[in-house]
């Protein structure tokens, strides 16, 4: 009963969900704006440490985060652990550019995959892409005024 109550609490306030498919996804928490639009470069350039600061900015501004799975699929995050939204929460910011293993419920719609992450079971930064790409974009690193 306690587990059910906890699940209900986790899923609120996102509207009531039908049964999805329980999944465990391994991949990187990405900035979906830069990943899909290509404005900062190809998919390889906008993942990992090279894009970390930009990913923080986009998430903070409301761009929904996703998980780029090791299977190459993008999972749009509807909720993640203790944060209600798809962007800008402390959890989304903490996990930006991190490689995670996320357990949750998968929903497919219009060819897109959506995930409600119930638990992040592993978390770390392993994709050191700045060694190949430096910082994407370069102006993502704020310059000190003096």
């Amino acid at each position: 009963m306690r587990a059910i109550a906890a699940l209900v609490a986790l899923l609120a306030p996102f509207p009531a969900l039908a049964a999805g498919e329980r999944v465990s996804i391994q991949g990187e928490v990405i900035d979906t704006w830069c990943y899909y639009s290509g404005v900062m470069g190809g998919p390889d350039a906008v993942v990992g440490t090279a894009h970390h600061t930009c990913a923080l900015w986009c998430s903070a501004g409301g761009i929904p985060v996703g998980i780029l799975g090791d299977d190459g699929q993008v999972y749009m995050v509807l909720k993640i652990e203790g944060d209600d939204g798809s962007a800008s929460g402390d959890t989304q910011l903490r996990l930006a550019s991190h490689q995670v293993t996320a357990d949750g419920m998968l929903y497919e719609r219009d060819g897109l995959k959506y995930i409600v992450v119930e638990k992040v079971v592993s978390d770390g930064i392993t994709n050191l892409s700045h060694e190949d790409y430096d910082v994407i974009p370069p102006f993502a690193i704020p310059k000190p005024k003096n």
């Binding site: 704006w33 990943y35 899909y36 639009s37 290509g38 404005v39 900062m40 190809g42 501004g61 704020p142």
Partner: peptide
């Protein structure tokens, strides 16, 4: 800072200044 980066992103994609690694970005989008 988001507005700045979104605008800057647009500039990178559509402006006439020097493009960085995003040259030809549309063709390399996911």
């Amino acid at each position: 800072s988001l507005a700045a980066i979104v605008l800057a992103a647009s500039a990178l994609a559509h402006g006439d200044e020097k493009h960085g690694p995003s040259d030809g970005a549309a063709a390399t989008a996911a």
